[in-house]
Nucleic acid binder design. Structure first.
Lengths: 203, 203
DNA sequence: AAAATTACTAAACAGTGTTTACAAAGTAAA
DNA sequence: TTTACTTTGTAAACACTGTTTAGTAATTTT
C-alpha cells in the first residue's frame, strides 16, 4: 500500500554485510563507517539503521559470517587419528587468523559499548569451537570425565588462541617469522603429553 | 627569552599521562579523547600535540607505563622452586589482566594506524616479559639448548596470554567464573610435564 | 483525484583527531 | 621605558564519525 522497497530488508542486510566485508578486507577496520558502507551499496547511511540496530550490530553480523567461515575451515580438516586431528585444528585456526587478519581481529577486538553484551547466538557459535576440540580429546582419553574434557578443551584451545593472537601482533612479540609455526605443534604435543602421561594413557 | 612555560615539556607529558590513565581506569577507552585529557589538566587539546606526536603516541606511552606496572607485579612474585615460580608468574599475569582490565586491553588491543609499527622501546619491553620466563625454564632443564628455552618460553607464555585474553572476554567463552583459575595451573603443569618428560628430566 | 502509507534521504547534532592562524605574555635590546 | 622579538597556548576550522529526525518523494488504496 505504499512505495515498494528497492530491495527487501533481507536483501539490504545481505548487501550491506557483503559491502562491509569487502571494505574490511581491502581497507581495514577504519574503513567500516556507516557512510562508506551505505555509499558502497548506493544507499544513504540512515538507511542502514532500518536493518541494523546500529553499527555495532552490523559488526556482530559480520562476525557471525566470520565465525561461519572459521567453522567451515575447521570442518574441512580431515582427521584420522585424534592427535593428528587436534594438530590440524590448531594449524587451521592459526592459518585462518593469518589469512583473514582483518576479519579475525574484528572478531576478537571489536569493543562493544560498555554494558552491552555479545548476543547469545554469537556466544553459542563460539562455544561450538570448543566443542569441536572435545571429540578428539575424548578419543584420546576415553576414561576421562566430561568435566575434565571440557576443562582440557578450553585450556588447550585458549592457549592455541593465545599463539594466534601473538602471531597477529607479529614482529613485536616473536623474532622469527615461522616461530609460531614451530610453537604450535610444540604446544599441542607437550600439552597432550602432559595430560595423558598424568592419566597414564600416553603411548 | 620569551614567555615561560606553565609546566616544562616533561611535566606536561607526565600530567597528561596521569590524567589519561585516570580517565582510562574510570571511564574506559572511549574516554581517551584529546579534548578530555587536555581539559583534565587545564590545557587545550592542541597543546597535547606539542608533547606527543599524536594520540596514538600518547597511548603508547600509557602502554609503557602499564608494562612497567606489569613488570613490577611480576618482579614481586617470590619464587623458590622454578616450577612454583612459573605458576606464580602465570597467576600474577592473569591477575594483572583481571585487576587492570582497561589498561591491559589498551596494551593489547590498541590498534595503530596500518603501516605504523609499534615503537622499538615498547617491543623491547615486551621481549623482557618472555625473558623472565626463560630463567625458571633453564633451571628446570639445564641441558636444554638456548634455542629450545626461547621456544618453550614463548610458547608457554603465549598460551598463558591466551587464557588471559579469553578470561577478559569473560562470560562468552567460559561458563564458570573461576574456570580460568583452574585452567591456568592445568596448562602450566601439563605443558611442563610434556616438555620435561620428553627430555627425560621429569621428576 | 485525494488520502494514506511507506522508503529513503538531507541535514542536524554532538562528538572525534589534527592543523593552523593568531593572541597573549614574557624577555631582550634600544 | 619603549620597542622588537620569541615562545606558549588556544580558538577555530576541517574533515571526519555514529545516530536521530524531519521531511520529500513514490506508490497504493480509497
Amino acid at each position: 500500500m505504499a512505495r515498494p522497497r528497492e530491495h527487501s530488508a533481507e536483501e539490504l542486510r545481505e548487501l550491506a554485510l557483503s559491502a562491509a566485508g569487502r571494505l574490511l578486507d581491502e581497507q581495514g577496520i577504519e574503513a567500516l563507517s556507516a557512510r562508506r558502507i551505505a555509499a558502497a551499496i548506493g544507499y544513504s547511511a540512515a538507511t542502514l539503521y532500518s536493518v541494523f540496530r546500529n553499527l555495532d550490530d552490523l559488526c556482530w553480523h559480520l562476525n557471525a559470517q566470520t565465525l561461519g567461515q572459521l567453522h567451515a575451515a575447521l570442518g574441512a580438516v580431515g582427521g584420522s587419528e585424534p592427535r593428528a586431528q587436534l594438530h590440524a585444528y590448531a594449524a587451521a585456526y592459526v592459518a585462518f587468523a593469518r589469512a583473514q587478519p582483518q576479519r579475525w581481529s574484528l572478531l576478537f577486538e571489536h569493543r562493544t559499548s560498555p554494558g552491552v553484551d555479545i548476543p547469545d547466538w554469537l556466544g553459542a557459535s563460539i562455544e561450538r569451537l570448543f566443542e569441536r576440540v572435545e571429540a578428539p580429546l575424548r578419543a584420546l582419553a576415553p576414561a576421562a570425565s566430561e568435566a575434565d574434557i571440557r576443562l582440557q578443551a578450553r585450556t588447550l584451545w585458549g592457549s592455541v588462541h593465545g599463539l594466534a593472537v601473538l602471531q597477529q601482533r607479529g614482529k613485536l612479540f616473536l623474532s622469527g617469522d615461522q616461530a609460531s609455526l614451530r610453537m604450535l605443534p610444540t604446544l599441542v604435543d607437550q600439552y597432550l603429553d602432559g595430560w595423558l602421561s598424568a592419566r597414564g594413557e600416553l603411548r
